[in-house]
Design a protein around this nucleic acid. Sequence first.
DNA 1: ATTCTTGCAAAAGATTTGCAAACAA
DNA 2: TTGTTTGCAAATCTTTTGCAAGAAT
Lengths: 139, 139
Amino acid sequence: MVRRALEAAGCRFTVQRAAVFHYLEQVQTHPTAEDVYRAVRRKLPRISLATVYKALEALVDAHLATKLTNGDGSARYDCRGDDHYHLRDVESGEIRDLPVEFDPDLLKKLDPKLIERLSGSGFEVTGYRLEVLGRFSNS
Amino acid sequence: MVRRALEAAGCRFTVQRAAVFHYLEQVQTHPTAEDVYRAVRRKLPRISLATVYKALEALVDAHLATKLTNGDGSARYDCRGDDHYHLRDVESGEIRDLPVEFDPDLLKKLDPKLIERLSGSGFEVTGYRLEVLGRFSNS
DNA sequence: ATTCTTGCAAAAGATTTGCAAACAA
DNA sequence: TTGTTTGCAAATCTTTTGCAAGAAT
């Protein structure tokens, strides 16, 4: 599955990429590249941080992960394939999934003609992103 | 107005901060710090990039601007004081305002009990952010 | 007069790159 | 074999910091 997706994106399957993917798959929060590096190092002690960055990029290319932008110039990664919303701690930057069903028609609810209006004014809509902001009291 | 807001935040009013604010105020897109630096330099040729960063930070502290996270690890700035949504070009990173009224109750529409549920599970909601993703065909 | 801000250069943090050796197909 | 990927170190990019001189109150 990981192998196939990587190949479909023209990338080779390697133990490093598999280890990064499997770590992302089982972790609760959305880790930074540095977090992934520290964790994967326990399995592959000789992996380098640069390889982790390249593995994350390959996984994103293969649509096996998504890169989430972080306020402070670092990024976090998510390996869920379906559309969903996020919860973001405005202080720590921690991100978790929001346990609410994704609504593909939310933009239409904001304004039924929004997509057509934007398209008419030169913006082709491909999707949307919603984050609930706040603070995790524990953590 | 800029002066008062800066003072309320415990910051002094300076020509550099005023120039940064006035540039942000009249520009259509949401510029990066580098963009602001290049623009403001035309009025204040001796301003430094570090001062632009510090001015942007002061404006954010004074609630005269907002910092928007960017995919590539840089930030963009917005000086609109009211809540509103953004349009983001997924390729260039360009951001513009979305001409749709902000809905303070959108989260409730997603799930009427969402805020209480999150609060019960240890997440204090302070707001939300919505971005429409796509591409500007011109630009 | 006192405290904050500026401009400069250096530092820091995150990410990317160049390259030779190792690996996957 | 052939083209990719790895690991390392160095480079790059954005942002932050230290500090002496200058500006604001």
